[in-house]
Design a protein around this nucleic acid. Sequence first.
DNA 1: CGATTTTTTGAATCATATCAACGTACGTGG
DNA 2: CCACGTACGTTGATATGATTCAAAAAATCG
Lengths: 197, 197
Amino acid sequence: MFSILFKSIDERVRLTDEEKESCKQFFIPRKLRRRQFLLQQGDVCRVNAFVERGLLRAFTVDEKGNEHIIQFAAEGWWISDLYSFLTGEISDYNIEALEDCELLLLSPSASEELLTAVPKFESYQRKLLQGAYIAMQRRITSSLKQTAEEKYLKVVEDYPHITQRVPQHMIASYLGITAETLSRIRKQLVQPDNPLI
Amino acid sequence: MFSILFKSIDERVRLTDEEKESCKQFFIPRKLRRRQFLLQQGDVCRVNAFVERGLLRAFTVDEKGNEHIIQFAAEGWWISDLYSFLTGEISDYNIEALEDCELLLLSPSASEELLTAVPKFESYQRKLLQGAYIAMQRRITSSLKQTAEEKYLKVVEDYPHITQRVPQHMIASYLGITAETLSRIRKQLVQPDNPLI
DNA sequence: CGATTTTTTGAATCATATCAACGTACGTGG
DNA sequence: CCACGTACGTTGATATGATTCAAAAAATCG
């Protein structure tokens, strides 16, 4: 159950076996079936989730009823609404399982206690956040300077393990374009003899 | 010279006066005149900069020669290309002073040594990154679900101290729209009797 | 297999970009 | 302190890329 988490940790900090053992008690294992929600818009986000198995999406619904996908999270990723999790304010986001999932959950209090019990976990978190921050910055850069077609090709190249597991209209939502537009972009790409897509 | 930095630290962690003193030696003070560059696209980002005074922008230039502003940084903010800073890869970003600046610079090695000398600095960094990550997430959400007009109103509301100090076309660039479009949006907003703008 | 979800296609519409011109403000050197 | 050059903002006309809405085709699920 903890194998992917320990792999994620090992890639960033050195924990002794005892430290790893004492980590375990702070996490609550949780299974989620496809289409179940971990968080609903309007609720407070009470968990920070690590994905051991499966795939989830975080999205928000605007006044017109359109969904906008903020993040996907597959094995080895964390997902939550960090703002709501840290402040206790209600969340604007939904988190839904796109596949059956096995998660490791951290409550706000467990999160704090874990940092006290295993100080090196702070370093792990800092490095995680650095990576996440860099990824976000790139996404913003991409949204500012790239065309829809370039953004699509980039996301397929950068996250093949996600794009292959997710319906096309969700990739469109992630890119900030409509499903119809993405369909037409792909048509263009396939026509000029492009077996890669 | 360190007053804004210590204020930033105090808001997030408790450092003793000795710890604060030992922090100082790792930073290199640096003044930058308006229009000077801290980083140029194609170079490696060798510093992480804290702004004691002044205002900077991070931007990237696309093939067509258009500038896209990724970030502004005023007093109390950090600015760098974290990816290039951490990996030593060349950067896609420029960092330019929009006003005369006083900065406190951290090199990659000083950054590591500081974490060893003052372990609580890791907690400060983690909390900084949490805040930055949340801000980025909101910007992405806003770019996905809001109209250009809504994005403009939000940035004016959220960052009045930035938007008041920066030419309008740079706000447009930050929002991912053209200067002409922003000009027309503002015209619309002012017409219907809106003294706020 | 039927039901549901997903993708594709077409036509009309809309928001924003582009290009070009002009007006304004700004600050810098003579 | 004025004049000039540069940067900034506005406006109009036109072009373009993406959206919307509707419907049909294709794929997937239970």
